[in-house]
Simulated assay, not measured.
Amino acid sequence: MRSKDVTNTQRKRNREASDWLLRNSNPNLSQDERSKFEAWLDSDPENCRTYSAAERLMGDARQAIQSDPGLANIKVTSRSGAKPIVTTLVAAVLATGAFLAFDGPVRLEADVIAESGEMPVITLEDGSDVQLNASSAISIDFTEKRRTVHLLRGQAFFRVATAPGRPFTVEAGETSVTALGTAFDVRYGNTETDVTVTEHAVQIDTVGNSSRSIQVDHDEQAVYDHATRETRVLPVDSLVALAWKRGQLAVDNAPLSAVVDEMNRHFGGHIVITSSMLADRRVSGTIKVADTDDALAFVKKALGVKAIRLGPLIFLR
Rank of each mutant, 00 (worst) to 15 (best):
K4L: 10
Q10S: 10
V130L: 13
R56H: 15
A302Y: 00
A156L: 10
E171L: 09
D185I: 00
T169H: 03
D68I: 02
R309V: 10
N8Q: 13
I204E: 08
L89W: 05
V177C: 03
F158N: 09
K300I: 11
G81Q: 02
A241M: 07
A297V: 01
N190G: 07
R229L: 09
G269N: 13
Q31Y: 09
Q66I: 06
V112K: 08
E33W: 06
R79N: 08
A110N: 02
D225W: 03
V186H: 05
A179V: 04
V233F: 03
Q155K: 13
G81S: 01
N209P: 04
V170G: 10
S136I: 10
Q203S: 15
A156T: 09
H270K: 14
R229S: 14
R56F: 04
G189F: 10
E230Y: 05
G117Q: 00
N133T: 02
R79D: 12
S35V: 11
L239E: 15
W20F: 05
L310R: 15
E46M: 08
A137N: 14
E199H: 07
D68E: 08
T96H: 05
T143L: 01
R282G: 01
S128N: 11
I273L: 07
V259P: 01
D111E: 04
T286C: 02
F142P: 00
M277N: 14
T292D: 06
F37P: 07
N8S: 09
A82N: 11
S213W: 02
F184R: 10
G285D: 04
P167N: 12
D294S: 13
S135F: 04
S213N: 12
N26A: 03
D185L: 06
A54G: 13
I287R: 00
F99L: 10
H150G: 06
L124P: 00
S213R: 14
